[in-house]
Each structure stands twice: as structure tokens, then as C-alpha cells.
């Protein structure tokens, strides 16, 4: 096992970099996309509500594996069309198809987390903001978003962890992430056990780091509560 590790650590490390990149990029794009989708899902207007709802239904209702195949091999069938609009140079790259699918997928899940969190903000606080004469945008900016973010954070951390593990599927479209590296090394050396135990250890370490980071952020988001618990009276006076 030790010689196995020293022989292949470089390969696994380069796989880990890819896994981290794909997770970070897709979570970033996914979150940016999720916010408008969540707001659309809260809209009373059918023309706004339904497109977002169908989007979420599709990406939550079909397996990610199928989505990756669909976007990667499906786009290959439409090469002339994609070339005509100048998009083929992106779709021909496995990394682009992988990040695109992962982003669209996590956007659907994240938007549901955000929607739930926005709905969980107490009516009274929104009404108080209205009574103070805040505009709709001000209410979003100062009341709804900060409150929803704090409420959504633990669930969103979970989504990031799931997303990190979901990136292991991109090895089916030739991406050499941690799982892709493990598969190649396993079959080359017939070291299936060693390769996948190593891969699991890498995922575990990264997930643990993500959770540690998320905890720190969570503590900051809930700073007002933590401080009140510790020495409430002084905090209130301040």
C-alpha cells in the first residue's frame, strides 16, 4: 500500500485538483443561476413560475449520469449546428460539458434550498420592513437575503458535499478526476482495492475540509446568536 501510494500520489493529486476545480466552478455557476430560479419559483405570474418549475423538475427528476451523457454525446450529434453558432469549440471539450452539466444540475437543487429558505423568513420581519417604508429591492437586500442565507447555509453545505461526490461521474466522459485516475491505475496494475481506497481517502479529506470551512462561515452567519448565548447582556447593550 505504501509503495502504491508513493508510485501514484502525483496522479491522484492531479485528479484531486480537477475534482476541486469542477466542484468549485459548478457550485459557483450553480449558485448564481439558482437565485433567479428560486425567485421565479416564488412568482405568482405563470409565465415566470412555469419555466423555472419545469427546469427544476427536469434536472431533479433525471439522473445526473443521463444528463452528462445527453449533453456530451448529444452535443456531438449536433456538431454542424453548434459550429454554425460558434459553440462547438466549447462543446468539443469534455471539461466544458462536465462543468456545464454539473452547474445546471446543482442550480436546480440549490434553487430549491434557496426557495425554502426565502419562504422561511418570518412574515413579521418583512411586514416590519414594509412598515418602515423599505422598497421591494431594499427588503430583498437587507431582510430577505441575509436571513435566507443563514437559514440555507447548512443545507447548502450538504449540497456542496453532494456535488463534490457527484463530480466522480465525469470520468465517464474521459475526464481524469480522482475517480478517473483511480480507474486507470486500478486496471493497469490490477490494484483495484488500493486504487479505490486511495480515491476514497482523497474524497474524505476534501469533504472534511469543505465541512470545516462551511462551519466557520456558518458561525459568522450566526454570529449574533452565538454572541448572545455566550454573554448576552453585554452584547445587547453594545
Amino acid at each position: 500500500m505504501l509503495t502504491f501510494l508513493s508510485d501514484h500520489l502525483d496522479a491522484f493529486a492531479s485528479g484531486a485538483v480537477i475534482t476541486l476545480q469542477y466542484t468549485a466552478l459548478s457550485c459557483l455557476f450553480g449558485a448564481v443561476l439558482a437565485l433567479p430560479i428560486a425567485l421565479m419559483r416564488l412568482s405568482p405570474k405563470a409565465a415566470v413560475f412555469w419555466p423555472a418549475t419545469i427546469y427544476v423538475l427536469f434536472f431533479r427528476g433525471t439522473p445526473l449520469l443521463a444528463q452528462i451523457f445527453l449533453i456530451y454525446y448529444g452535443s456531438g450529434q449536433f456538431r454542424p449546428t453548434l459550429e454554425a453558432v460558434g459553440l462547438w469549440q466549447f462543446f468539443r471539450e469534455p471539461w466544458f460539458c462536465a462543468v456545464l452539466t454539473l452547474s445546471l444540475n446543482t442550480a436546480a437543487y440549490s434553487s430549491e434550498i434557496f426557495r425554502g429558505a426565502l419562504q422561511a423568513v418570518p412574515r413579521g420581519e418583512v411586514e416590519a420592513a414594509m412598515a418602515l417604508g423599505m422598497s421591494a429591492l431594499q427588503r430583498l437586500r437587507f431582510i430577505l437575503f441575509p436571513r435566507a442565507l443563514a437559514a440555507a447555509w447548512p443545507a447548502y453545505t450538504n449540497e456542496v458535499v453532494y456535488q463534490l461526490q457527484a463530480t466522480s461521474l465525469v470520468s465517464i466522459i474521459t475526464v481524469m478526476d480522482i475517480t478517473g485516475v483511480a480507474r486507470v491505475i486500478a486496471s493497469r496494475n490490477f490494484a483495484f482495492y488500493e486504487a479505490f481506497v486511495t480515491a476514497a481517502a482523497f474524497y474524505l479529506a476534501i469533504v472534511y475540509l469543505v465541512i470545516l470551512l462551511a462551519r466557520r462561515v456558518e458561525r459568522r452567519l450566526h454570529a449574533h446568536l452565538a454572541a448572545a448565548d455566550a454573554n448576552g447582556s453585554r452584547k445587547i447593550r453594545a
Binding site: Y73, S75, G76, Q77, R79, R92, P94, T174
Partner: peptide
């Protein structure tokens, strides 16, 4: 079969 597909698409 997947390799054939990507040869066809030009990847």
C-alpha cells in the same frame, strides 16, 4: 462504442 461516437463528432 463511445470512442466511435467521439471519432464521429470530431472530439
Amino acid at each position: 462504442e463511445e470512442a466511435y461516437l467521439d471519432l464521429q463528432s470530431g472530439r
